[in-house]
């Protein structure tokens, strides 16, 4: 089967500072990949480069999403094509309700795909169903987007957006950070519910803990801007014991 996401020898950075140094990674539909690595290894940069954040420049290499190069696509075009990023630090938008944001987002993506917008009643039903499945009460849909949300609520809200948008590839950037064990379980349940044969996932995390709940097919270790080791779920357990020490080069320690 051809890859959903195929990254070859990717070099990228912010302004003139290189961060990714020849990263290669391939995810097929249905697979869940985890990327683990120490701080500063470039995990979040990878997620921003994939999503097309302004200021992150690719100097070399290729990123193919469903066979199409992401390089010249605007962030919203990537979203429309089915790429979703759950943010490590979800943004607040005062005055815009969660409901409004979800609806605007869903319909922007449907429009981008040449589909009809969802009518108000169907949307409301869908939003309620998905949010209840994540243990969120209806009240949260009426609140302003992420304003005054706890860390756990923000992360759960990211998963809700993912559930509504049903992306082809979901990138979860440290979705576990700042979550207590109960919130972690809820979020993991939400992610697991979205596992599907035609959907790929890239789970970025520091800790093995999340991977107790979201079982990855492949685990990668990232250091110094590239993948330095790949393996099965057992690799994560190994890392938990031995730490990242053996993968971290001089440059990172300095």
């Amino acid at each position: 089967m051809s890859a959903l996401l195929d990254i070859q020898n990717l070099h990228a950075g912010v302004e003139d500072t290189p961060i990714l140094n020849g990263l290669s990674l391939s995810i097929r539909p249905g697979e869940v990949h985890a990327i683990m690595g120490p701080n500063g290894s470039g995990k979040s940069t990878l997620s921003y480069v994939l999503a097309g954040k302004d200021g992150y420049n690719v100097s070399q290499g290729e990123m193919l999403f469903n066979g199409t190069s992401l390089a010249y696509m605007a962030p919203e075009e990537r979203a429309i094509a089915g790429l979703f990023l759950a943010f490590q630090y979800p943004l607040e938008i005062p005055g815009v309700t969660n409901m409004t944001f979800l609806k605007t987002s869903l319909n922007a993506i449907r429009r981008g795909r040449g589909e009809d917008e969802m009518d108000a009643a169907s949307f409301l039903r869908l939003a309620r169903e998905k949010s209840r499945a994540l243990g969120m009460n209806d009240d949260m849909l009426k609140r302003q987007l992420n304003v005054g949300f706890s860390g756990g609520e923000k992360k759960r809200n990211e998963i809700l957006q993912m559930a509504m948008l049903e992306p082809k590839l979901a990138i979860l950037d440290e979705t576990d950070s700042g979550l207590d064990i109960d919130a972690l379980k809820t979020v993991a349940d939400g992610v697991n519910a979205l596992r599907a044969p035609d959907r790929g996932m890239l789970v970025i995390t520091h800790y093995q803990r999340l991977l107790d709940f979201i079982k990855p097919d492949v685990v990668h270790v990232m250091a110094d801007g590239k993948i330095v080791k790949s393996g099965g779920p057992e690799l994560a357990l190994e890392l938990e014991k031995s730490g990242y020490g053996e993968y971290v080069g001089e440059a990172v320690n300095a």
Binding site: A51, G52, K53, D54, A74, P75, E76, R78, A79, I80, F84, L85, F87, P90, L91, I93, P94, G95, V96, T100, F101, T104, S105, L106, A108, I109, G112, Q144, L145, Q161, L165
Partner: peptide, 24 residues
């Protein structure tokens, strides 16, 4: 960027954020 990642183009994103700002 957050709005764009959710499918809105830059002008839609500004309109949404500004409308939120003006809500009261």
């Amino acid at each position: 960027f957050f709005c764009q990642q959710r499918g809105l183009d830059a002008e839609e994103a500004v309109a949404l954020i500004v409308n939120g700002f003006c809500r009261d």
